[in-house]
Design a protein around this nucleic acid. Structure first.
Lengths: 246, 246
DNA sequence: ACAAAAGTGTTAGAGATACACCCATGG
DNA sequence: CCATGGGTGTATCTCTAACACTTTTGT
């Protein structure tokens, strides 16, 4: 921050990498792209790209997400910075510092194969083979963070359509955490946390055909949950670099 | 991550900025340096510097911390990546992307005025004027993260000497949170959380002269606390980007 | 009628809060 | 002896987990 000569050092490239999650068919999925060139040609990788000269990393991440999924930054969409990966040898070609982001998107939008030639696809989380570069680590970090944030934020609604039932919301939790939750207690906790969800006065909708029609809710304004919704029996692994509970 | 030409873009400089905290005399302090040159000459700023070509941001942060405080990376010291600040205009001279870190150090080591000319000093948190660049925001983010992490990690021991009493540990919590804690309940919670602190079988030490001698403890191996140690009556503000509860 | 999911109620236990109280030391 | 801080005990309250039960639909 003191000596300043913009050519004093080998130039650094700054990129963003995105771990984009969605819940489809009761499984957590990640958006991956297939690399067309060396290194790691043919391997799957996280979508991403360079930060342009007039962009912040956040802007670049939003742009890449839109290019890859067609989702505008408005929608129920959640995009959050994870951390920065800067090992000198993480890309064999040159010095690349990557700011990683985690994104949560509602129902699986059609996969647009991005403007760049690469093939993009939703893969069930856990079924993907080894990814290119250090992307396995980034993806694992992103997954940890999302799991942890589900406990003390209303983030789970980012996986739901604008209107959803409590059963659907519970299914999202169960899918992401890989644990079963008691419907009765889940209901009480969610409704007892002010600002988490807002009831829609209108009608009720059938769930999957079977069962009593469920009431509809919208995501509420609360960002932090009080009290938190703790996952069962799990000793919370280390918190990702953010906090809360955080 | 696809097109690769290391000179295709204006070079980015990558730096680290450090928010270094300590607890001294019952007050939370931050390490700041006085800038000697424009822009912001005469203003206080967070210590930091360039990431060298063969370093990761983590290595650079550890090096800068050692240069500034003389503390080796061993000691009870805690250093953690916060997030990356990359607004295009955050430095008027050129494009600088900064990876911010938060550090917690035990008792105030003597301030070494760093190898770079700038004057370095511990200032009580909250008394510093406006900082250079976007450092006010970085410092505030770091403070939020530290407060939040005190709830669900054993981080507070990073502010204590290797051996400490529960009264000292409680004072750290009270100082950082700015709240009073019930000594009896604090004791029970800390001792009831396995791995938080380990008792030292040896002798007991007097606290400040007055009162019954207190038992000594060392920081335990636990990184996450179960159950968490919640700060009183405060609705936990938003969690910093990491984890539980932020 | 039956299965399945929504929604309500109830109970037993864990954890938190608030205090009262005893212990050991310095002045 | 008294103020101060360490350390123990305990009653009350809240929150949670577990599970029984009712309601409303589709088949």
């Amino acid at each position: 921050m003191q000596g300043y000569d913009k050519y004093a050092f080998e130039p650094f490239a700054v990129t963003v990498d995105l771990a984009v999650f969605t819940v489809r068919a009761g499984r957590l999925h990640v958006l991956l792209v297939e690399r067309g060139q060396e290194p790691y040609a043919g391997h799957w990788a996280l979508p991403g790209g360079f930060v342009l000269p007039e962009e912040s990393a956040e802007t670049a991440a939003g742009r890449e997400l839109a290019e890859e999924t067609g989702l505008a930054d408005s929608d129920g969409l959640h995009l959050e910075q994870l951390r920065t990966y800067s090992e000198p040898d993480r890309d064999p070609r040159m010095r690349v510092v990557s700011v990683a982001f985690a994104a949560l998107v509602p129902d699986p939008p059609a996969v647009r194969a991005g403007s760049d030639a690469a093939r993009a696809e939703w893969l069930a989380y856990g079924t993907q083979g080894p990814l290119a570069f250090d992307h396995d680590r980034i993806l694992a970090d992103a997954h940890d963070r999302v799991c942890a944030k589900f406990e003390y934020t209303g983030l789970a609604t980012a996986f739901c359509p604008p209107e959803f039932t409590l059963g659907e919301l519970r299914k999202v939790y169960e899918t992401v955490w890989g644990a079963e939750l008691d419907p009765a207690n889940f209901r009480r906790k969610v409704l007892g946390t002010s600002g988490f969800v807002d009831a829609i006065p209108g009608a009720a909708r059938l769930t999957g055909g079977r069962g009593k029609p469920a009431a509809l809710y919208r995501a509420g304004p609360a960002t932090a949950l009080h009290p938190p919704l703790l996952r069962p029996s799990t000793v919370p692994s280390d918190i990702s670099p953010e906090g809360k509970p955080s």
